[in-house]
Amino acid sequence: MNRSRTLPVAVVSLTAATALLLTGCGGGGDEKDSGKDKIAGADEGGAKKSASPSSDASADAKIDRPEMKFPSDVDLTFDKVSLSDADQAAAWNDAQNYARAIEYGIVKQDAGDAGYKFYSEIGSPAQSYAKKQIKDHIDAGYTVTGERRYTDVKVETVSKKKTVAVTFCTNDNKLFGKEVKSEKVLRTKPSIKDYSSWQISMTASKQTKGLWRADLIKVEGESQQCMG
């Protein structure tokens, strides 16, 4: 992304224990991801419960979600994805919320913001990643401005596990870093640095029906596969 000229996108190195949870997502994969690990998530035990979209919508309406209101100069645009499976749809919705929460923490300049904490498992790699991204921007004195696009979305359920693997690309050739104090926008020319690939394991909350939280994450900057 354009802001990565000053703040590189972190490539998350998962621990050995976490790496054991990485598997291929199975059918519907893309040749662009050949040779890449994909996050499958941890087994919570028990069979997966089926749920109708209507029941999920009802449960979602009861979730007390943290508010995230972005300034008018920040636009996060997600590809529309049609998912018939209720769990997949809910997981993708909260994967979007997790991604938004990272940018919201940067905009608010708050590494302890409730947003990313709400949409990630406590103490998980996903929560650590979000906090570090926000803190790095704060420490450097930067926020963001412009548009980030989230594209090439794939959503797959991990067999017999209450876990959904979400992958997507980010395109930041219209997103720029902005100095907090001077409000100077750091404009740069489009390049491969604007593209990143994301893999996120979303886990169903045991406490809140309808809520999904990010657990494992892998983000790779300068992604050639996301430029296509």
Rank of each mutant, 00 (worst) to 15 (best):
A51I: 10
S197R: 13
V11D: 05
K154W: 04
K117W: 08
K49W: 07
H137G: 09
T6Q: 01
K174M: 11
G228H: 05
A40W: 05
C226H: 07
K62I: 10
G35V: 09
D215Q: 05
L22G: 03
Q199K: 10
V144W: 03
S82E: 15
S205R: 03
Q133I: 06
Q199E: 04
S58K: 13
A16K: 12
S4G: 03
E183V: 08
D79I: 09
N93V: 00
Q224R: 11
A17M: 11
G221N: 06
A130Q: 11
K189H: 03
N93G: 02
Y119M: 09
D94M: 01
A61Y: 07
E220N: 12
D33V: 06
K162H: 10
A86N: 02
K181Q: 13
K206S: 13
P71Q: 09
A17N: 11
D113M: 12
S54P: 02
V166C: 09
M202P: 03
E179Y: 04
V155S: 02
P66E: 14
F118E: 06
Y150F: 15
R148C: 06
G26W: 14
K178F: 04
D152S: 11
S13N: 04
D139S: 14
S201A: 15
Q225T: 10
K154E: 11
E121F: 07
A214H: 00
D215L: 02
Y119I: 12
E103Q: 06
A61L: 15
I122R: 11
V12Y: 02
D37C: 02
C169R: 01
R148Q: 14
A19I: 05
K174I: 04
A17P: 02
M1A: 07
L175T: 03
A19G: 03
L7H: 00
D87L: 02
G46T: 04
A111G: 03
L14N: 15
C226V: 10
E222K: 15
A19M: 13
A19K: 14
K184G: 03
S4T: 15
K62S: 14
Q133N: 09
S13H: 08
F70E: 04
T203E: 10
V185K: 11
V164N: 01
T15K: 08
S124A: 14
Q225M: 13
Y98R: 00
T167V: 10
L22M: 13
P8F: 03
R5T: 08
R65Y: 12
A19S: 14
K135M: 07
K132A: 15
D73H: 12
D110N: 15
Y104H: 14
T203K: 13
